[in-house]
Design a protein around this nucleic acid. Structure first.
Length: 478
RNA sequence: GGCGGCGUAGCCAAGAGGCUAAGGCGGAGGUCUGCAAAACCUCUAUUCAUCGGUUCGAAUCCGAUCGCCGCCUCCA
């Protein structure tokens, strides 16, 4: 069964076929590094991570590029304000960005090109556009002439005529031939400070759209498979990328365009004034474990608007605990015996169902439903007869396999203090001597510290937000 | 004004013409347990924003209405 993806340009699901069999080249619009990324940004990066991991799971090699926009009005303004070089201003922001990617378990792309490291490529591309007559110079800047590109608007459905209606024209852009034209190169202004590059058409800095065209070509070629971003990028950013790229090369540029819907918080668009603007670190500070954040951002289909609320995050934590019961059952499985046929069948069905759900435009909800069904099946079987070692091994193998895509199924085992472990062991000793009053008091204390206990024949399981661990008295010395 | 999206149970969320409308969270009752927790069992939408239409048949297609949201020159 082929992979089917929703292509923004065609406004429908289409069968996916990479240019080069077995390899997918994808360009994912990344962060403008003027400030820390917020969870809305990460909703998109999680979608791209799911796309990447799904393609790999389904047998493709993936080459992913994510750009870092480190030169624009905001980065320049802030670096000037702080009186430090641009790179010095953006470096720590980029560092924190990667920390957040790691926190959320987002796999690293193959390339993270920064715009400022690829100015020569951009200049060359602009030169080509000038030579081919698609661009013109005005007052030190270079603009792309939209009217000369006949297919303009095919991605967003914005025809040139429609764009003419209800326009607003910025006063400082009077030098453009046509208000719909966009800047490829911005002539140097005093506000740019030290930030400028020498080019055949004058000193200045690149426009926004040109970096993605130049860097995608550099790392993926003039034509590649998938280009993604948030819906807000459809127009004008991606529309302009297509125009300048196709005009320059005559090739088709990206073949599939995928866009993720936005995230809102408590039903409202995030904004600093509303106080509902969150970074990953803000959420960690609020006590949400990374797995739960990832779960929330991942579990809603990428083309559906996602409403982040406390209730949703709490439900995510509980859902993860449900998933974890399967992993725990697999870890605790012991004794001889073969894998029961019913389990073997369930494992096969789950693997197939999971894969085919992903193949249908990354149907994450169905994929997860398949896993929840397996959780039920496993517990039902364990009710009949405890899981044996072979069954535990088979379950862990499947769990690890599907987690290559989800990246959240394996509970944390660290993050609990030795002091708490001692308390758990102490309680177990008290239980064994039938001092239930004392034992229960310890349990209540631990509950109040956010740690749930489960007594099993294999030991006491300590559960905390994001993780769980089996605590045995016998392990005390090891 | 132009372009586009969304509205399914208390909450989240699948389903996109035809088996009893997936799944998760939450809730109610029961089994198990020293007691819990987890697990298991049973129940929790006669109906898919509203109103019309097409059809043998619609949550799914069409139209209108209401509500929410995004984009319309540098916001994922």
């Amino acid at each position: 069964m082929p992979i089917v993806l929703y292509d923004t340009r065609q406004r429908r699901k289409v069968p996916f076929e990479p240019l080069e069999a077995g390899t997918v080249k994808m360009y994912t619009c990344g962060q403008t590094v003027y400030d820390d990324a917020h969870i809305g940004n990460f909703r998109t990066y999680i979608f791209e991570d799911l796309l990447r991991r799904s393609l790999k799971f389904l047998g493709y090699q993936v080459v992913q590029v994510m750009n870092l926009t480190d030169v624009d009005d905001k980065t320049i303004r802030e670096s000037c304000r702080q009186g430090i070089p641009l790179k010095e201003y953006t470096a720590p922001i980029i560092e924190r960005f990667f920390e957040d990617l790691d926190t959320l378990g987002i796999e690293r792309a193959e390339h993270y090109p920064a715009a400022t490291d690829h100015v020569p490529e951009m200049i060359a591309l602009i030169q080509t556009l000038l030579e081919k007559g698609y661009a013109y110079q005005a007052e030190g800047s270079v603009y792309f002439s939209v009217s000369r590109f006949k297919d303009y608007g095919q991605l967003s459905g914005m025809s040139l005529e429609r764009l003419a209606k209800g326009v607003r024209i910025d006063a400082d852009e009077y030098e453009k031939d046509d208000f719909r034209d966009f800047a490829l190169w911005k002539g140097r202004t005093p506000e740019d400070g030290e930030v400028s590059w020498e080019a055949p058409f004058g000193r200045g800095r690149p426009g926004w759209h040109i970096e993605c065209s130049a860097m995608s070509m550099r790392y993926l070629g003039e034509e590649f498979d998938i280009h993604t971003g948030g819906v807000d990028n459809i127009f004008p950013h991606h529309e302009n990328e297509i125009a300048q790229s196709v005009a320059a090369t005559g090739k088709g540029f990206a073949r599939y365009w995928l866009h993720s819907a936005h995230l809102v918080v408590d039903g409202e668009k995030m904004s600093k004034s509303l106080g509902n603007f969150y970074t990953v670190k803000d959420l960690l500070a609020k006590g949400y474990p990374p797995r739960a954040i990832r779960y929330v951002l991942l579990s809603v289909h990428y083309r559906q608007p996602l409403n982040f609320t406390d209730e949703v995050a709490q439900a995510a934590m509980r859902s993860l605990e449900r998933f974890d019961t399967l992993y725990q059952a697999a870890v605790l499985a012991s004794g001889g015996g073969k894998v029961r046929n019913t389990l073997r069948e369930a494992l096969d069905n789950t693997r197939q169902g999971f894969a085919s759900s992903l193949q249908d435009d990354l149907g994450i909800a169905e994929a997860m439903a398949d896993l929840f069904k397996l959780v039920s099946t496993v517990h039902q079987l364990a009710q009949e007869k405890p899981l044996n070692r072979a069954e535990g091994v088979a379950l862990k193998a499947l769990w690890g396999d599907v987690d290559r895509v989800l990246g959240l199924l394996i509970p944390e085992e660290t993050g609990i203090s030795g002091q708490i472990l001692d308390a758990v062991r102490n309680r177990e000793r008290l239980r064994r001597s039938h001092d239930f009053a004392q034992a229960d008091r310890i349990r209540v204390e631990l509950n109040q510290r956010g740690i749930q206990l489960e007594d099993t024949t294999e030991g006491t399981v300590a559960i905390w937000p994001g993780g769980r661990r089996i605590v045995r008295i016998e392990d005390d010395n090891s």
